[in-house]
């Protein structure tokens, strides 16, 4: 599936009666990338869940490649091209690495698994291991590779670097950067690590209490320490 644009228009969402996300609007062109920043509890994960149709939407529109996917359920949205790498990784713990990848293949031939091993050679070494036997970094690689194998046109990444060792972060970021450079997927990158988020995408959106508090370029944000301290936290930029 080729890369597709993502347009979010006045999106509001929440859990039950609680509204977490309010009137959020942004767009990412096909093959583009956008980083979403914000402190804990500001609605970043809710945004991705709402985009995937995994939480209750109370208003707004979502368009993928110009097509309105707002009324679709999660399965239909995934078929329409959205692919989520969740924050909790959520690998199938009772399946081996290779079996996890099989699930991600959907209709693609089994030989396509080689793409995942080329992306993350460590997964090839661990392919007989069960999901629960993997380290956090390996689980993140598996979760990412499993989603990418499904060839989404828009890839949603929810804090993929959380809790990972620096060397694993570098490995993961190298793969994601290569993928973004290829233009094969539009990538929405939600992250708490400011330096990684700024290096990954030219444009940034900051969420504050469920609303877009600031949007602009990575270079602008990098140079504006007052802005960083206000929305991200003191000492966020190393």
């Amino acid at each position: 599936m080729p890369a597709a644009s993502l347009e979010v228009l006045g999106l509001s969402a929440g859990y039950g009666p609680t509204v977490i996300l309010e009137d959020v609007s942004f767009s990412v062109p096909a093959g583009g990338r956008l980083s979403v920043l914000g402190r804990n509890g500001m609605g970043k994960t809710t945004l991705l869940m709402a985009l995937m149709g995994l939480t209750k939407r109370t208003g707004g529109e979502i368009r993928v490649g110009g097509a309105d996917v707002t009324a679709m359920n999660a399965t239909a949205r995934a078929i329409a091209g959205l692919g989520l790498v969740p924050q909790a990784r959520e690998v199938f713990k009772s399946l081996t690495v290779e079996e996890n990848l099989f699930v991600g293949l959907k209709e693609r031939p089994r030989s396509a698994i080689a793409e995942a091993y080329a992306m993350f050679p460590r997964l090839a070494e661990r392919r007989r291991n069960l999901g629960w036997q993997l380290s956090g970094g390996e689980q993140q690689m598996l979760s990412t590779a499993r989603t990418i194998l499904g060839r989404p046109s828009v890839l949603l990444l929810d804090e993929p670097l959380e809790g990972l060792a620096p060397v694993i972060c570098d490995e993961l970021m190298a793969v994601l950067t290569r993928l973004a450079d290829s233009g094969e997927m539009t990538i929405l990158f939600v992250e708490q690590r400011l330096d990684s988020a700024l290096n990954f995408a030219e444009r940034v959106v900051i969420l504050e209490r469920g609303r877009i508090a600031w949007t602009g370029t990575s270079d602008t944000l990098r140079d504006d320490h007052t802005l960083i301290e206000r929305y991200i936290g003191v000492g966020a930029l190393h």
């Binding site: 995994l54 359920n73 949205r77 969740p86 199938f92 713990k93 399946l95 099989f102 989603t147």
Partner: peptide, 18 residues
């Protein structure tokens, strides 16, 4: 494998477009 995935986490399977 998909069936076993459903047994473990049906929501994740849905989010994968299955």
């Amino acid at each position: 494998m998909t069936c076993r995935g459903i047994k473990e986490d049906p929501l994740r399977i849905r989010a994968m477009g299955i």
